[in-house]
Design a protein around this nucleic acid. Sequence first.
DNA 1: CTGAAAGCGCTTACAG
DNA 2: CTGAAAGCGCTTACAG
Lengths: 342, 342
Amino acid sequence: VAGLTLEDVARKVGVSRSTVSRVVNGHPHVRDDVRQRVLQVIEETGYHPNAAARTLASQRSRMIGLVLPRTVNSFFTDPYFPQFTQGIAQACNQLDYTLGLFLAGTREDEEKLFPRVSRRGFLDGVLVQSGHGQIGERLTERLIKSSIPLVIVGRPTQPDGASYIDVDNAEAAYTAVSHLSRLGYQRIGTITGPASSTVGIDRREGYLRAMTERGRAVEDCLVTEGDFTEAGGYYAMQRLLPARPDAVFAASDIMAIGAMRAIREAHLHVPNDIALVGFDDIPLAALSDPQLTTVRQHVLQFGISAVELLTDIIENGLTPQRRIIMATELVIRESCGAHRRR
Amino acid sequence: VAGLTLEDVARKVGVSRSTVSRVVNGHPHVRDDVRQRVLQVIEETGYHPNAAARTLASQRSRMIGLVLPRTVNSFFTDPYFPQFTQGIAQACNQLDYTLGLFLAGTREDEEKLFPRVSRRGFLDGVLVQSGHGQIGERLTERLIKSSIPLVIVGRPTQPDGASYIDVDNAEAAYTAVSHLSRLGYQRIGTITGPASSTVGIDRREGYLRAMTERGRAVEDCLVTEGDFTEAGGYYAMQRLLPARPDAVFAASDIMAIGAMRAIREAHLHVPNDIALVGFDDIPLAALSDPQLTTVRQHVLQFGISAVELLTDIIENGLTPQRRIIMATELVIRESCGAHRRR
DNA sequence: CTGAAAGCGCTTACAG
DNA sequence: CTGAAAGCGCTTACAG
């Protein structure tokens, strides 16, 4: 199943393979009638260039990698990632790049993976998810050292000089908590993300700032850590309950859903007894009972922007470090009790 | 950033590049001390072979593609796909293959995608999700014609001679509905998957067979179609309600969750008024209230097996068409009312 | 505008 | 067991 080569096409048309190559790559300086004839033969024969040969000759693969250093669980437990991946895939298709997907859960995975996630592998550049423990940290570090075009998704733990893209987590959390405060809640608690991740840290910081600015004392018993899973939110809420919060800001919707379950089991009511605000605006947020007030991220667009940033770096050389910070919006539904209070 | 080549390593060791190549590829017939010296230099220099060159010379990329012809919505709405993808990625890592991810939603996507999903692209073989409308059908057909090693995930609509892997959907549905029947329910309804997909058809068939064998008349008003989304299950249940079913088999958990919401809104109780059985055993199934009785698929293992089948075909040539059918198991929780009835 | 030629970094018979 | 050589299918200066 060898398939046609450039040479075959060239012979059929009666030109050199340089010319066919120029036509295929859309270079100017080809006489118009020649171009037409070449195009026609390509059409007729269904010729497609061999990607490996092209890559070898041009040192460009038009393929990027998405590296998700994740433990098994959270990847398919949180709807965030599929959606994000979708955005990435869509943008790749648009920009005519091939997407390689690399999930690393274990240390062993990392070792097998690394050679492939490099320029010697097939890649022109890589997108790596920030955070997620040791695997993630070390992988990112090695990637930076390898000096392959790189965009970190989410503020990196260390400001290591790589470009990154993130949403404005602190600001978003600040807005959410301020909203609760304005509604008159006094004892506002929070279920944070992992303290080892910058998402966790930044959203927590937004919470703290809002509390302070609004003149609320921040009590330790009102702050507890979750792990971005439903179960994590559930247990976190159980820990929060004794502190008698009248409102809770959860750092993700899926944790808010878990919290809701804990509240229901305690025979309390959302929002009458405890108001709730989440983060992400996953599809489930609009379907829960009560519907979840939350911070909407434009996850799809986020993925698209990440790819655009990366391909820009690939194609236009080493620009100074770039950061892109995306805005969010608060979506007010039922769980914060805003309607009730009017 | 050229990096080291085989030649560089060969020079450093003082052998030909043929020898280094043999060592890298683990060929026998290399004197042991030579092998050691080569290995050491590779270690020291951090040499990794250039994948494009390797692919061009050997006509093998060790890369496979996962093609998901999907509309935007269902991919991140149903936890099934992330989990499946995870299994695929894990197996690829294990078997030392690179995974390319291709999501096609629109016709335009398909056109841009096709050249890359072929041997001329980078791929040694492809895994394509069966069904999902026109895009999927046509893509699969073109893939078959291109004669690239191919495994269809899920029984194909047309028995076109491609290898495929699937779970035993009809059998699983049969078991689930028989279970409801044994519990004494009389008016058992079903929310099917799309009639255009083989999953939809096969699970429906299992339902019909169980009903018939158990001497239940199948009433049209007890069968309605969903689209594997929460909202789809919700509306389907609303359509079913007037028929007064005392039990419902939903062809996916996420639809069962939607159905539950509709039942709750109608001020009815699961399982007292209407018993419910789902399909998939997604994480949410164990967290819903009441917990969902469902058919468990070993999705991760399913993904792994799919990759193993494909790589086997790639590496061992055109075997006769292969089919792999995987078993499922019924997980009895609360929503079917089994416990209540004892 | 077009072609001949070198080169990308490997693998793989073929000799020895 | 080892090396010299051809070849994989392109791109890209370099001439003209």
